[in-house]
Amino acid sequence: MNNELILIVCMLVMLVCGVTAAMSRSMIKSAINLAAVSVALSVLMFVIGATWSAVFELSVCSGLVTVIFISAVSLTESKLDSTTQRALHHSRFAMLPLILILAGVGIIAAIVLNGFDVVSTADITQTEKPFREVFWNLRQADILGQIIVILVGTFAVVILFKERGKKI
């Protein structure tokens, strides 16, 4: 499969899952769809050469954030009253697909008119440095950040789930 096809598939997955996330009546389904958007975005970033962004998007946004989303939903949903539930179920995003289609057509028109070529742009980012050197030597600040993100994820799980029976 060539890069352009992967890009198109990823963008389609992102569009469909993104719209589904916004329009779904179930918060859990929305969170899962959002995770799918993150996964597709990670693949897209990897293909266009933004390897570091892809790794972080995959590990944090698709992994950790989704876990926290689903945890928060499972803790919150039972506490919502019937009025809030009805408001959430109301199809206030009915026009969203139409707006997105129009926006998409506009962006594609702008790209075509300006002669933008994705593949040639991706060549700019090709780096000769091996991933190991990039990861350990060039992105030390990000590694520190990742460690702290994992730390806060651990605290989140401990604080939100410990003694659940007593409080919730």
Binding site: F56, V60, L160
Partner: peptide, 24 residues
Amino acid sequence: FSLYVFMEVTALSAFVLIALYRDA
């Protein structure tokens, strides 16, 4: 990109702090 990484750290910590008491 490092700025973005530390923004995520900040946002996740703030989220946990807001929900510290786990009330609705």
